[in-house]
Amino acid sequence: MTIPLSHYLIVSGILFTIGLFGLMIRRNILLILLSIELMLNAANLNFIAGSALHGEINGQLTAFFVMVIAAAEVTIGLAIAVLLFRKMDSVDTNDIRHLKG
């Protein structure tokens, strides 16, 4: 029994939405980075589903590239979070309001 494409799309849509809501609701930088990761993985799921559907290898390759990019993004995010923690003893976005706006 094969799972139809729509199932994958629904799951990835749900993942993406959870990530989006997490990013908007959470106030902890680490959890925000986690939410972004979730959104990127939703895209990865689509790539792999598409790759299986079309019988084409490029989608799986793309998923690897996206993982690398996600790792790089989180690395920079954590580095900045460390800088912020040294400065303010907090990684809570509620405490970051020195730039008005």
């Binding site: 494409l5 799309l9 990835s12 993406f16 990530g19 989006l20 990013l23 930088i29 925000i32 980075l33 972004i36 959104m39 990127l40 939703a42 895209a43 990865n44 689509n46 790539f47 589903a49 598409g50 559907l53 989608g59 793309t62 996206v66 990019i69 993004e73 920079i76 995010g77 900045i80 979070a81 800088l83 912020l84 400065k87 970051i96 020195h98 730039l99």
Partner: peptide, 27 residues
């Protein structure tokens, strides 16, 4: 630091939207 952090979070959000769009087009 704050500017970098804000740019990173919102920029990654934009990248996530973009890659999700690309994945839909790939599918």
């Amino acid at each position: 630091i704050e500017a970098g952090l804000k740019y990173l979070i919102l920029g990654s959000l934009a990248s996530a939207f973009m890659i999700y769009g690309i994945s839909l087009i790939y599918v």
